[in-house]
């Protein structure tokens, strides 16, 4: 099996967000960057599938600045065989990113192309699906359970109030949701081995796209409310406030 995993470098979810001087992006100083958490599920799925198959190749593809090399090394330390960095500052338009990634993956003989269901920075939730459309491949998004067998896959995805069950032939694109697996941590041996694994860098230039960010701002602060009281005796007053003041029950 030949499997590609697409990876993005994002700010850690615990990072405090400060708007940068341009008023359109974040101030990256002092922010810790990590592999996108949903992409870690995709990495784990790829490594586990290759282990189960006993043969094949896993490749991680990231689009980002040179700083993303470190993120790729983390994936290599988990057990991915080699990495490709598409050097680009990125785009607010996910379709432009999808076009660059699709061009890299096209004709490379991948049986499976994995993504995280979304990146926790821009919340675009679309690049994996768009890549599948561009490559005219079957795609199942936001997968929380995956079985690959005999050239086909079955998958489950959560929908409101239920679980959708899907099937398709390989080659295919899958985007991973939480629940699909538990990503492994890189071992010390893996970290050492990652330093020697191939990492290819290629500059790419993205189109202008149709989406322009005009501003980035922090949301209005929520005013701290009132402590109604202490212990169960405060409950009647709370219920009264919810009914007469907030009018929500």
């Amino acid at each position: 099996m030949k499997i590609a995993v697409c990876l993005k470098r994002v700010p850690d979810t615990t990072a405090k967000i400060v708007v940068g001087g341009d008023g359109k992006s974040i101030d990256e100083s002092g922010v810790k960057f990590v592999p996108n958490p949903y992409d870690e599920y995709a990495l784990e799925a790829a490594i586990a599938l290759k282990e189960k198959a006993g043969a094949g190749e896993t490749v991680v593809v990231a689009l980002g600045t040179d700083a993303a090399q470190e993120t790729i090394r983390t994936a290599l330390a988990m057990g991915i065989d080699r990495g490709v960095l598409l050097q680009s500052p990125g785009s607010a338009d996910g379709f432009e990113v999808a076009k660059a990634i699709a061009a890299e993956l096209k004709g490379q003989g991948y049986d499976l192309i994995l993504f995280g269901k979304m990146a926790v920075d821009d919340y675009n939730h679309q690049v994996g699906v768009m890549v599948a459309e561009l490559l005219e491949l079957p795609c199942v998004s936001a997968v929380s359970a995956l079985t690959v067998e005999g050239g086909a896959l079955t998958a489950e995805r959560e929908i409101e109030g239920g679980v959708e069950q899907l099937a398709c032939q390989l080659p295919a694109v899958v985007t991973a949701d939480k629940g699909i697996n538990t990503p492994r941590l890189p071992s010390l041996k893996g970290i050492m081995a990652a330093k020697k694994k191939p990492l290819e860098t290629k500059p790419v230039s993205l189109g202008a796209g149709s989406i322009t960010v005009t501003s980035l701002a922090l949301p209005p602060e929520r005013q701290a409310g009132k402590i109604v009281g202490e212990g169960p005796d405060a409950v009647p007053a709370l219920v009264q406030l919810l009914r007469t003041e907030a009018k929500v029950i």
Binding site: P138, C139, I159, E164, Q165, L166, A167, C168
Partner: peptide, 8 residues
């Protein structure tokens, strides 16, 4: 390309 088999 993708078949939805059902909803659990």
């Amino acid at each position: 390309r993708v078949t939805v088999k059902g909803v659990k």
